[in-house]
């Protein structure tokens, strides 16, 4: 790892000041992606601003929904009684990320800010129509996730809280890469107040996306067979040594059907 200056500010204001002060500074959440990336010299920030002491951790029920602090770990979300009561599907998503030790440090805010194209939370938040609060505004998940590792976050802007309303029903089905356990394809199906939402991770060349064809099919008939019958086009899907675009397209319908069956 290249040399770096470490800061642990005690408030969001102080963190923003540190991030603004130094051009090459990066916010550090759980570090489960950023630190390995720095070790591989794929990231070389001049300073790390650790958000651990900024009071951004914790889960509270509010107005029938949940407000989750950005620094809340995957393990805390997986074990939370509030999450189990209001949004059990999110607990299941969290319990399937990485491995136990990674879940003890990795955070929901870090995951959404990184927007890895194979991460689980972006699909979950997109389908559940989550609102992502930052130090300066609130963004719909749809506006927030822009592309491969790209979000609507401006320079020096940090995610502070995630707001979620419980869906009428929802489930997530993931086909993990057998080695990395990242989603080769992950599909979140949710019925929200606005209708059926189907969000796909792991497969898109441009990161997480909603699938209009699956949403229309499930809107007409909410059954596993209806999802499985959708012919998903491989256009715009990723192809690499793990899976071709055609295989990923096939898996999207299969995972969607499994998610519907689990709803």
């Amino acid at each position: 790892m290249y040399p770096v200056t470490y800061h642990r500010p005690a408030s969001v204001e102080e963190a923003l000041h540190l991030l603004a002060e130094e051009e090459e500074a990066m916010a550090l959440a759980g570090g489960q992606t950023l630190l390995p990336t720095m070790k591989q010299h794929l990231a070389a920030p001049s300073a790390l601003v650790d958000l651990a002491a900024c009071g951004l951790s914790g889960i509270r029920a509010e107005g029938g929904g949940l407000v989750i602090g950005a620094m809340t770990t995957h393990a805390e979300i997986a074990a939370s009684a509030e999450v189990a009561a209001h949004l059990p599907v999110l607990g299941l998503v969290a319990a399937g990320i990485g491995d136990p030790a990674v879940r003890h440090r990795g955070t929901i805010g870090g995951s959404v800010a990184n927007n890895d194209p194979a991460a689980d939370y972006p699909a979950a938040l997109l389908a559940l129509e989550a609102r992502i609060e930052t130090d300066r505004r609130v963004l719909a998940a749809e506006e927030f996730f822009e592309g491969l590792f790209a979000t609507a976050l401006e320079e020096g802007e940090i995610v502070t809280r995630i707001h979620l309303d419980p869906p009428k029903r929802a489930a997530y089905a993931k086909f993990p890469n057998p080695a990395s356990r990242y989603a080769l394809v992950g599909v979140m199906v949710a019925e929200t107040a606005a209708g059926i939402r189907v969000a796909v991770t792991g497969a898109g060349e441009d990161g997480v996306f909603r699938h209009a064809g699956l949403e229309a099919a499930l809107d007409a008939e909410f059954t596993p067979d209806a999802a499985a019958a959708v012919r998903v086009s491989p256009a715009g899907l990723a192809a690499d040594l793990h899976a071709s675009a055609a295989y990923r397209a096939h898996l999207i319908a299969v995972m969607a059907a499994r998610a519907v069956a689990a709803c």
Partner: peptide, 27 residues
């Protein structure tokens, strides 16, 4: 592995298992 996959570096930090190769001493 030094890539936070193998768990040979696992220790308990504040009562929780963590990978010490993916945690800064300063953190």
């Amino acid at each position: 592995c030094d890539t936070s996959q193998c768990g040979a570096c696992l220790v308990h930090l504040d009562g929780r298992a963590v990978k010490s190769c993916a945690t800064l001493a300063a953190q």
